[in-house]
């Protein structure tokens, strides 16, 4: 068939499909369209908001990745350069404040699934709609659960507190009463386990959490579980299920006193460790298998 004949045949065939003017029922149906509820109109405005939310998510996500990217860790006070013998655990070592902007991230996680559904609603491709409406919120939930569930725990490791006297708190959990003088430093040795299914970087100890934690160290020799053998902390990569022995250094404070039946005190149940998951830094409160009581004198004004 020649080109001319093909084109002429197409004109004829397609012209034969031309039905002429539209039927009256279509005119009436189209004329009634403006009376339909303007549902999509409202959605269109929401979709604009959803784009803004998506842009916000992108900015925050990029910010988190850039902020939390494992780079050269600045040496903590007391840490000697690599190649020399490790520095001992001293006040100020291993302290790090998590960098992640948690509140904006939580807001974004509230908004994004809804935004994704709204954007997906407007996609023409069925595969695209499914991908956005199902996959994106699923990813958000997955990433959110990574960010907001515990990644570190104690889970069957060793622990030791010096010097302390054990009492029964009445609910089965040992209460370790510290035998300290005002201004004393004491140590808690603890095995930390990565209880999540993803690799976690243990980055240090959050000093802002209670004010009592003044340093973090590592027990490098797995055969020696002695808090006094701790060296200055350096970030540690923990695979899923991986464990590391750390030593938290605490300041008893100026109001600490010898324990007596009439004195009050502070009871510690958790250690605030800073971890990083996929570049997302946050503080995880690792539950201790015991309670630590630091006795304090009554009516003591701290500086």
């Amino acid at each position: 068939m020649t080109d001319d004949r093909l084109e002429r045949s197409l004109f004829d065939l397609l012209g034969g499909r031309d039905p002429g003017p539209p039927p009256e029922r279509l005119r009436r149906a189209v004329a009634a369209v403006p009376a339909l509820p303007a549902r999509r109109d409202r959605f269109a405005r929401l979709a604009g908001l959803s784009r803004l939310a998506a842009a916000a998510m992108l900015v925050v996500a990029v910010g988190i990745v850039l902020q939390g990217r494992p780079g050269p860790t600045p040496p903590a006070p007391g840490v000697k350069p690599a190649g020399t013998s490790p520095a001992p655990l001293e006040p100020g070592t291993g302290l790090v404040t998590p960098a992640a902007p948690v509140v904006p991230v939580m807001i974004v996680f509230q908004v994004i699934p809804a935004a994704a559904i709204l954007v997906g609603w407007r996609l023409r491709s069925r595969i695209g709609r499914r991908a956005v409406v199902l996959l994106v919120p699923a990813l958000m939930v997955g990433y959110g659960s990574l960010a907001f569930t515990d990644v570190l725990g104690f889970r069957g490791g060793a622990s030791q507190v010096q010097p302390a006297r054990t009492e029964d708190d009445g609910d089965g959990v040992p209460l370790l009463v510290m035998l300290v003088e005002p201004g004393d430093l004491f140590r808690i040795a603890l095995t930390v386990t990565n209880v999540s299914a993803v690799p976690v970087t243990l980055r240090g100890l959050d000093p802002d959490a209670t004010g009592m934690f003044v340093g973090l160290g590592l027990l490098r020799d797995p055969q020696v579980f002695d808090p006094e053998a701790a060296v200055a902390f350096q970030p540690v990569e923990l695979p899923p299920g991986g464990q590391v022995d750390v030593v938290a250094l605490l300041d008893a404070g100026p109001c600490a006193t010898d324990p007596g039946p009439e004195v009050g005190g502070i009871i510690l149940e958790q250690v605030p460790l800073v971890s990083s998951t996929f570049g997302w830094e946050r503080t995880t409160w690792v539950e201790l298998p015991f309670r630590v009581k630091v006795p304090r004198t009554m009516n003591c004004a701290e500086p």
Binding site: R25, V30, A38
Partner: peptide, 26 residues
């Protein structure tokens, strides 16, 4: 008429144009 030629079906063309009108209005 364009929809009918593309779809080769008047009934489908009516549906397509009506759906298009709804989207256009929204």
């Amino acid at each position: 008429r364009m929809a009918a030629v593309i779809l080769a079906s008047q009934l489908e063309a009516e549906d397509a144009v009506h759906d298009a009108a709804v989207i256009a209005w929204q």
